[in-house]
Simulated assay, not measured.
Amino acid sequence: MQNQQDSVHDSTNGRRFSRRRLFSLAGAASLLAVAGGALYRHFSSTSSIRVESFATSGTGGKKNILVVTGSARRNGNSALLADAFMHGAAAAGHEVSVFHCGRTPISACLHCDGCWSTGIPCVLEDGFDAFWPLLEQAQMLVFCSPLYWYNFSGHIKCAMDRMYPYSRKNRLRDMKVKEAMLLMCGESLFPRSFAGAAEAYRQMLGLKHWADRGRLFVTGVHEFGDMKGHKALAIAEQMGRNA
């Protein structure tokens, strides 16, 4: 009888021990999850600049959309992102044009103050000659760039700089653009890495009084083809449909 009681006692202690251990492990896991979440939020956003993806719905009206890409690599990751957006926008009935800054090189602005002196925005003769007619017809601009050194690519940055004539006080005419979107992808795993480009984009919106219609930051893509099958393509396509 005593042996049976001892066995029951040992079994009960074992169950209690197992339960205590289980609760302890669960508590430790919860603490680790909370700490991990806090660390991720810290490392993914150490800047006060808003670096997150979002999109807003349009009015449903058809518009002229110009997509400006910043990579010279055909069928690269950012190119696939732009293609997905354009597919969605075209399916929704929008008129969509694209200008590939990396394939039609545009030199940097020289700040020569020759803007409009010949009746056109810029006196330099290069890829901008093909860009500005598209720019003047667009009602929405969509910038799509890979992340280069924590900012826009040099290709698309030159095109942005050459838009300076449309911000001068003595400009002959301005753009029709009222809205803008930003699509970016990069190797970094942290959204904070896009803070520089996000802030530059925000400043452009403020200068030109454009409505911010959405931003998409895709992390962890670098090698050619990393974007193929990525869930971000469906998001970009939906942003195009809702443009």
Results as ranks from 00 to 15, higher is better:
Y148E: 09
F131W: 11
L147F: 00
H155T: 08
S153C: 11
P133K: 04
S117I: 06
E136R: 02
F131D: 03
F152L: 15
D129Y: 00
L124I: 14
F152W: 15
V123C: 05
P133G: 09
E125A: 13
T118L: 12
P133V: 05
P121Y: 05
D126Y: 02
E136N: 02
H155M: 13
L134K: 11
D129P: 01
P121L: 10
E136I: 01
S145P: 05
T118R: 12
P133I: 07
L134V: 00
M140T: 14
E136W: 02
S117T: 15
A138D: 08
L141P: 02
L135C: 12
S153D: 14
P133C: 06
F152N: 07
W132P: 03
A138T: 07
G119S: 13
L135E: 01
D129I: 06
A130P: 01
L134I: 03
L147V: 00
G119Y: 12
M140N: 03
E136M: 07
Q137K: 14
N151C: 05
F152R: 05
P121G: 12
E136Q: 13
S145E: 08
A138Y: 04
L134H: 02
F131Y: 14
Q137S: 09
V123W: 00
L147T: 02
E125S: 11
G154S: 15
L141Q: 09
W132C: 03
W149P: 00
G119N: 13
L135T: 05
Q139W: 01
Y150R: 08
D129R: 10
S117A: 13
W149G: 04
F143T: 11
S145V: 11
W132E: 10
L141A: 14
L141K: 07
Y148K: 06
C122M: 05
L124M: 13
C144S: 15
L124P: 02
C122K: 06
L141G: 03
Q139T: 09
L141R: 08
D129W: 01
G154H: 13
Y150V: 01
P133A: 09
S153H: 11
S153E: 12
A130F: 04
P133N: 08
F128N: 11
